[in-house]
Simulated assay, not measured.
Amino acid sequence: MSSVKLGDAGDISILDFGPFLDGTNKQAVADAVLASFREMGFVYLVNHGLPQDKIDGMFGWAKKFFNLPLETKQLAPHPPSGTHHRGYSAPGLEKVTQHVYDDEELKRNRSQAPDVKESFESGREGDPYQPNIWLPDDLLPGFREACLDFFWTCREVELSILRALALGFRLPEDYFVKYHTASDNQLRLLHYPSVPVESLTKERVTRIGAHSDFGSITLLMQDQVGGLEVEDVTKPGQFKPAPPVEGSIIVNAGDFLQRWSNDIIRSTVHRVRAPPHLTTKDGMTPERYSIPYDMTTVVDCIPGTYSEERPKRYEPISAAQYIMKRLAASY
Rank of each mutant, 00 (worst) to 15 (best):
S2L: 11
V4H: 02
K5N: 14
L6S: 12
G7S: 08
F20R: 10
F20G: 08
G23L: 07
A30P: 04
V33M: 10
A35F: 09
S36R: 07
S36P: 13
V43Y: 01
V46H: 12
K54D: 03
K64S: 09
F65D: 02
S81C: 03
T83K: 12
T83W: 02
H84W: 15
H85D: 11
H85Q: 05
A90L: 02
P91H: 00
K95G: 05
Y101Q: 10
D102K: 10
E104P: 01
R108N: 07
Q112A: 15
A113T: 06
D115V: 08
E118P: 09
P131T: 12
P131E: 08
W134E: 02
L139S: 06
C147H: 14
C147E: 13
L148Y: 07
R155F: 05
V157W: 02
E158N: 02
S160M: 00
L162S: 03
L162W: 14
A164M: 13
P172I: 11
D174V: 10
T181A: 15
D184S: 01
H191D: 10
S194Q: 07
V195E: 07
P196D: 13
E198M: 09
S199L: 14
L200W: 05
R204E: 15
A210N: 07
D213C: 07
F214S: 04
L220M: 11
D223M: 10
V225I: 10
E229Q: 11
D232N: 13
T234A: 14
T234F: 03
Q238P: 08
E246V: 13
G247F: 11
I249M: 14
V251G: 08
G254D: 14
D255L: 00
F256C: 10
L257A: 00
V272G: 02
H277E: 05
T280I: 01
D282H: 08
D282V: 01
T285S: 03
R288N: 01
Y289R: 02
Y289H: 15
Y293H: 00
V299R: 06
E308G: 00
E309A: 09
K312E: 06
A320P: 09
A320W: 12
M324S: 14
R326C: 14
A328E: 14
